[in-house]
């Protein structure tokens, strides 16, 4: 077991460095729209003494210009976010655990100008950190229910400047500069109809705080956010490989940003994405997950870019002091 942990530890470090390296060497061709913190708080609660780690690479590309629910077909602008996220969970008692989420973010904005030029603006840096306390309410072979809450701590910079030393827009910054309150809920129903068919629901809420920007001359508050991730997964054996194919939906509703305490036009909206994916399970303590997201419904306030594609890849690793998890499935 010690050797196994050592090998996995090396894998984790390797993947982490690869993700960060990947972000750093990405060709200068995209831009971005928000650090995907709330949507990536996906670790199940840890048992007492158990450590769970999940390293995630998340790519979100916004390329569709919408007026409310109408796609305007304008392809001149792109925003993208490349995020490396490290989520760590530690079980401090039978039902309580602490989770933290660190992010390293590259935000990009690219514009295809009408004279055929490509304008790229790019920022890179450590994002904000989330710390959640979680309580497992039910955890047996049939059901799982956990809730959590905690702050998002603004350690990421929100005052990065461009080459001309001009402060960049708030949504290009890796950090928000504000303390937010995060709420989290996970519900699972195992053995649905069949033994290995599971239903999962993950809800996150984010009540945002206000940040000072532009040398204290502007107060900026990102819109409050609510997300529901729900769907089904089933465990199958393909040859000698255990796979959890998943079909999930992500519903996300974001309120308007506030500038100087007044709502900012053309911010906020509602989105429903279809999210097929799969997990490859080496064993209960090590798995790899991949998912893609395709917009099903997009409604934006005013006119905004909306997500066109989203990809997520994660490596999950569990260090358990002795006992194994009794849950046959964990979200995601």
């Amino acid at each position: 077991m010690g050797t196994f942990k050592l090998i996995m530890g090396r894998y984790l470090i390797f993947l982490m460095l690869t993700c960060i390296g990947w972000i750093n060497v990405l060709p200068a061709q995209c831009c971005s729209g928000g650090v995907p913190i709330a949507g990536n708080l996906s670790l199940p609660g840890s048992k007492k003494g158990e450590v769970q780690l999940q390293l995630t690479y998340d790519y979100n590309r916004l390329r569709s210009l919408f007026n409310e629910s109408e796609n305007l077909g304008d392809r001149t602008r792109q925003r993208s976010t490349h995020s490396s996220l490290l989520e760590a969970s530690y079980g401090i008692s039978k039902s309580w655990s602490v989770v933290s989420l660190f992010s390293y973010v590259s935000q990009e904005r690219i514009i295809e100008t009408i004279i055929g030029q490509r304008e790229l603006t790019r920022t890179l840096g450590l994002g904000d950190v989330v710390i959640l306390a979680r309580k497992s309410i039910v955890d047996n072979n049939h059901w799982g229910l956990s809730i959590g809450a905690g702050p998002k701590v603004p350690i990421g910079r929100n005052d990065l400047k461009d080459d001309n030393q001009l402060e960049l827009a708030a949504d290009l910054q890796p950090g928000s500069g504000a303390w937010d309150a995060m709420f989290w809920l996970s519900f699972s129903k195992y053995r649905l109809i069949r033994d290995r068919l599971n239903f999962s629901l993950l809800g996150t809420g984010r009540l945002t705080g206000r940040a000072e920007r532009l040398s204290g001359r502007q107060s900026y508050e990102f819109g409050d956010e609510f997300q529901l991730l729900f769907g089904f997964s089933e465990r199958v054996l393909l040859g000698k490989v255990l796979i959890d194919p998943q079909l999930m939906f992500r519903f996300r509703q974001v309120g308007a940003d506030f500038v100087n305490e007044l709502p900012l036009p053309n911010t906020g909206g509602s989105f429903l994405h279809l999210m097929p994916g799969f997990s490859l399970l080496a064993n209960e303590n090590l798995s790899f997950r991949f998912s893609a997201e395709f917009p099903v419904f997009r409604y934006v306030q005013g006119t905004q870019l909306a997500t066109s594609q989203k990809l997520t890849a994660s490596l999950f690793f569990r260090l358990s002091p002795s006992q194994r998890s009794n849950t046959p499935f964990s979200l995601p």
Binding site: F183, F187, F226, V254, G255, A256, P265, N266, Q301
Partner: peptide
Amino acid sequence: FILRYIFLVIIFFGAFACSLDNNP
């Protein structure tokens, strides 16, 4: 027991989602 929790959760998040500020 579970249904009771789900109900509470739906109320909580429903209220949360409805309370989000949107643009004028």
